[in-house]
């Protein structure tokens, strides 16, 4: 079955729900059920936090290494070095998000302008 399989106004919405809403939400529901009886100070939660942080980090890497849209037309070395410059500036200057973003963006656009 494809997005344009049925010529009804409703089908695309069913497709969106089945194809993406449900496969995303199901994990949240399982998470709520599984965490039901775990004690708040449990070591399990440290493990869970480590895994969720590593998953987010892998998403970050994906956004830089294999971006979609306009960022994909920027060379890889520019993307990765701008990201590292932004993160280094963030660490060096008081761990303020704004600093990381400012320096990362300046490096990305500055590098692009020089190309």
């Amino acid at each position: 079955m494809y997005f344009d399989s049925f010529d009804t106004a409703l089908w695309p919405y069913v497709f969106i729900l089945l194809g993406a809403s449900l496969p995303t939400a199901i994990w949240r529901w399982i998470g709520v059920v599984l965490v039901g009886n775990i004690d708040d100070g449990s070591q399990w939660l440290v493990l869970v936090r480590c895994v969720s942080t590593a998953l987010v980090a892998a998403v970050i890497a994906q956004l830089i290494f294999e971006p979609s849209g306009a960022l994909a037309s920027f060379p890889f070395y520019l993307r990765i070095s701008a990201a590292l410059i932004g993160f280094a500036a963030f660490l060096a200057m008081g761990r303020r998000l704004f600093i990381g973003i400012l320096f990362g963006e300046l490096a990305l656009l500055g590098g692009y302008a020089m190309m």
Partner: peptide, 30 residues
């Protein structure tokens, strides 16, 4: 587009409670 990865990275660094979470961030990224 580039705002998102930088925000995710810097924000997770600041949100971490134990050093192991920072290590998880680096390991996941690599």
């Amino acid at each position: 587009y580039f705002l998102t990865p930088i925000y995710f990275a810097t924000s997770s660094w600041n949100t971490s409670r134990v050093p192991a979470e920072k290590l998880a961030l680096v390991l996941g990224f690599c």
